[in-house]
Simulated assay, not measured.
Amino acid sequence: MKPSIKAALWSALAFPGLGHLLVLRRPLRGCAFLLPTALAWAYLLGHLLPLLNTLSEQLANGSLAPDPEQIAQRVTEAGMGGAGPGVALAVCTVCWIGSVADSFLASPRPQP
């Protein structure tokens, strides 16, 4: 299998930029995809997990009805309905697609 295909598979199936790091031996290019994606994931998980914990506790103790409209309202009130999560998801998507495409186009570094 060609190294560019291996790199694209690593980047597509594992995490953006891993193919550049592990197969193509291009750490700077790999970090250009890996770091923004990791930061976006950290932002999403850092804001989403506490919200999910709060909502699940409220659903369990009965203070929040299992109504999708009420839950969506609480999510919006918590700030997860604004532009921040959308931007983070866009960064993840662009980095993922860009990493796979760049892996196909890049060639491995020549070994000294």
Rank of each mutant, 00 (worst) to 15 (best):
A78Y: 07
T76L: 09
A106F: 02
A90Y: 06
A8C: 04
N61E: 15
P16Y: 12
G79P: 06
S99L: 06
L34M: 13
G46I: 08
R29E: 13
G82C: 08
G81F: 03
T54G: 05
F104T: 07
P3E: 11
A42E: 03
L39M: 07
S107I: 08
I5H: 13
H47Q: 15
L21P: 00
V100T: 04
G17D: 08
S4C: 08
L89Q: 08
W96P: 00
L44E: 05
P112Q: 13
C31Y: 13
K6G: 05
T93Q: 05
E69S: 14
A12Q: 05
F15G: 06
L34I: 05
F33R: 01
W96Q: 09
C92P: 07
A88D: 01
L28W: 09
V23L: 06
S107H: 15
L55Y: 00
L24Q: 01
S99M: 02
P27S: 12
G46K: 14
F15T: 03
A90C: 11
L9Y: 00
L24H: 00
S4P: 00
E69C: 07
P50H: 11
Q111P: 02
V87Q: 03
L39P: 01
R74V: 07
G17E: 02
K6F: 09
W10I: 01
T93C: 11
N61T: 11
C31R: 12
K2H: 15
L51D: 04
S103K: 05
L89F: 06
L55T: 00
R109F: 05
Q58N: 09
A40C: 04
E69P: 00
L51C: 07
V23F: 07
T93I: 12
Q111R: 15
P27E: 14
V23N: 02
Q73G: 05
L45F: 15
G62H: 14
V23W: 02
A40S: 09
P112D: 13
K2F: 09
L21D: 00
A83C: 09
G79A: 07
L89E: 06
A42F: 06
L9S: 03
N53L: 14
G98R: 02
H47E: 15
I71F: 06
G84M: 03
L51T: 12
V100G: 00
V94F: 04
A83M: 13
Y43S: 08
M1E: 11
A7N: 03
L51I: 09
S63F: 10
A83K: 13
T76V: 14
Q111F: 09
P50T: 08
V100F: 04
V23K: 04
S103W: 02
L105R: 15
A32Y: 03
G84Q: 02
P108F: 04
G86A: 13
L52Q: 13
G81K: 01
R25S: 10
P36K: 04
A72D: 08
I71C: 09
A65K: 14
P66E: 08
P27V: 10
R25N: 10
A78K: 03
V94S: 02
A40T: 05
E57Y: 04
R109I: 11
S11G: 02
C31D: 08
C92Y: 03
L35P: 00
Q73C: 07
C95M: 14
F33L: 05
N61K: 08
Q70W: 05
W41M: 10
T76F: 08
L55M: 07
